[in-house]
């Protein structure tokens, strides 16, 4: 982490983690579950007799969304403290 503790640096760090989370958000839903489903289907992995893309469409994406929100919450709580902008 950088030594810059300005509000601008805090915001830049926040936007960065948001973008990372949104890339994963889009990858599991629009990517794995829809557009990249044929690519995933080439892998020798099936869940319950169907290709991985179907599982992402019905369950995998939802489970990833939950993990993403809690990861973001944990990361931001740490970032808030580091930049001294947390709520007591």
């Amino acid at each position: 982490m950088s030594a810059d503790k300005s509000p601008a640096a805090y915001w830049a760090a926040n936007v960065r983690i948001i973008l990372i989370c949104l890339v994963i958000w889009a990858l599991v839903s629009f990517g794995f579950a829809i557009l990249l489903r044929p690519v995933l289907a080439m892998l020798p992995i099936t869940i319950g007799g169907v290709d991985l893309g179907f599982w992402f469409a019905q369950q995998g994406s939802i489970l990833t969304f939950i993990v993403l929100i809690f990861y973001y919450t944990w990361y931001m709580n740490r970032l808030d403290r580091e930049f001294g902008v947390d709520e007591e």
Binding site: A57, S61, Y72
Partner: peptide, 24 residues
Amino acid sequence: GYGNSSFLMGWTGGYVLLALLLAP
């Protein structure tokens, strides 16, 4: 079947946007 997975992903994926972009 598969095609309507949109409802599952759409109605849950919105909460990621809420948590990251609006609610706080």
